[in-house]
Amino acid sequence: MMSYLEEHYELIHKTPRLFALHVTREQLLDTLHQITTHTSFDTLSQLTCTDWIEEERFELGYMLTNALRSHNLMLKCSIARDKVTMPSLALLFAQAEVMERELHEMFGIGFEGNETLYDFALEGWCDIPPMRREFDTLAYVNAHYDFREGREDNLDVKEEIKKRKAAAKSAKETPSGA
């Protein structure tokens, strides 16, 4: 299984059980097809995305698992942050459909050929996709939600607990000293 990969690809050994290889957007479908037919890596177990905002790119990670569930292979694919579409894997792996739907919602990545790219966990979201790093969570929260006002006494909880502990301690000590 490994020999085929070693022969055809530049395999990076991350740990004894985890390998990685870099592919381009154009190579992705072909490579996946080759790997699933020639090796035992036949299941897509995860689809991840990292936002490298400084380098203006997303890095997608397609995690493949073998039939014994003993080894993982991650295909890494970088795409530009602004031109964000990928070919969908829905025809290769049925489970990819829902994973892509999530990435579409959280990062705004389009997947050509996936028919289910509508609202998922967020209903009626019309801001920047929230997992993109330029999304300002706190500003969004302040604009959309009301906060409950703090307690009137507004005590610092940590300080209060310390004080109470000290008071309890001294109360204990006084009778024994007296």
Partner: peptide, 19 residues
């Protein structure tokens, strides 16, 4: 439910149920 708890700064949870 009272004040957002540890999700007070989450974009996807409400902060005051009694609203």
């Amino acid at each position: 439910t009272i004040n957002g708890g540890m999700y007070w700064d989450s974009y996807n949870t409400i902060k005051k149920l009694d609203d």
